[in-house]
Design a protein around this nucleic acid. Structure first.
Lengths: 223, 223
DNA sequence: CACCGTGTGACAGGTCAGTGACAGATTCAA
DNA sequence: TTGAATCTGTCACTGACCTGTCACACGGTG
């Protein structure tokens, strides 16, 4: 999952990013509205967490512009004071959720995941494929009921593949979902590496990752 | 829209079918889990409405098997009693919606249509030709539902032909679409080669690539 | 019948993917 | 804070398969 955090208070931002990155969400940080616009043009995000009060303007303005352009990316608003009026107008602008500062990190993560899930169209959060059950919120993968330990990156990659099962995911798309701009300079080779590691762990599960040379990878259930 | 109703209570089933057929939804009725499996093997459906309590087993088992096989057809569950636990576990199994009996016919129809719409949205720009379905975003080609593996070049060529189906594509145009300036020095013969390879993979699909000597190629569906 | 454009099998690069080893980074527990 | 364990990502090498050329067969057209 690729997330954009727009927030000017550095310590809040850092705490959030550390937390989210640790659980496998690739985060980019923008500290102004302008910066955020740049990021948004550069690449698509799965979720945006947007502070309202920013040095060069209001987060709500950015939100309005996005919606006016037809961008439907889920947006969670953040702010310190949140009157009932603020709340209503924010939601009316097309925000999907909001959180009042100070907030609990765990709550933020849970809500972000909920937004992502909703976007993906998954009702439940447990996915069964072959002999695998995958639970993105609990971060647990089971093979025939037995837990399989996955590292952060392995988990993120598997989640991307599972959510797009049956479709070919180009190496670029996987790369975008896995790494943020901070993880600069990571080679594309890393994807191949993790694909290999995942394959080992998925062995004997009726689920396999197919390679399509020059196109990407595709996760499928054995016939 | 093609719908499979799995329900053993005849009068309920008939009422539903009459209503849905009247508004243009093609319905098949299965009265047992076994019968439903038969239908599902025989052909794909757009939506499945699935009762939980059936004479020879539970609808939830059928649902679980489908999801384990990677089948993501939207499923709406029906049942008389529906505790919170039932609800959660059903959704976690991969159901997309549920309805408690007795229900309003109009509500059923509205929800079924909602499921269908969402599914169509996901499929987006999927193109069906004869027995082929071609999905450019997922980079997947299926012949009678079975995935056909294509290489990068084959895929590009097929996409060009499909997007211009019915009209003749000159070899030059195909060439321009397939090769960039980097791929300099590739002979025109390469096109013929890939046409040949594609023809083999499209064999038995009611879709054929016609040669128009001196003019180019044309992809068409058999009469 | 000759010609030109097309079909096709075999083959030789060449590119891209798989993999093992390794070093730096990070996490976790004392 | 330190050290062990694990995770991360690079590098280099190997191997597989796609790619496109060549050569030749085929077939319609004039």
């Amino acid at each position: 999952m690729r997330l954009l955090l727009v927030e000017d208070t550095l310590d809040v931002a850092e705490a959030v990013i550390i937390r989210l990155e640790r659980s496998g969400i690739a985060c980019d940080l923008a500290r102004t509205v302008e910066e955020a616009r740049g990021y948004l043009e550069a690449q698509p995000y799965d979720v945006i967490v947007l502070d309202i009060n920013l040095p060069d303007g209001l987060g709500t303005d950015l939100l309005r512009d996005m919606r006016a352009k037809g961008d439907r990316t889920p947006v969670m608003m953040l702010t310190a004071q949140f009157s009932v009026d603020d709340r209503v107008s924010t939601l009316n602008l097309g925000a999907d959720d909001y959180l009042v500062k100070p907030f609990d990190q765990r709550e933020l993560e849970a809500r972000v995941r909920a937004l992502y899930r909703r976007e993906q169209g998954d009702k439940g959060n447990e996915i069964t494929l072959g002999t695998l059950t995958f639970n993105p919120t609990a971060k647990v993968l089971r093979k025939e009921g037995v837990p399989v330990t996955l590292t952060r990156r392995e988990f993120s990659l598997l989640e991307l593949l599972i959510r797009n099962r049956g479709s070919v995911m180009s190496k670029d798309r996987l790369y975008e979902g896995l790494f943020s701009f901070n993880d600069a300079e990571v080679g594309l080779n890393a994807i191949e590496l993790y694909i290999g590691r995942l394959r080992k762990k998925l062995a004997g599960s009726k689920v396999h990752i197919e390679t399509l040379r020059g196109l990407g990878y595709k996760l499928d259930v054995d016939a």
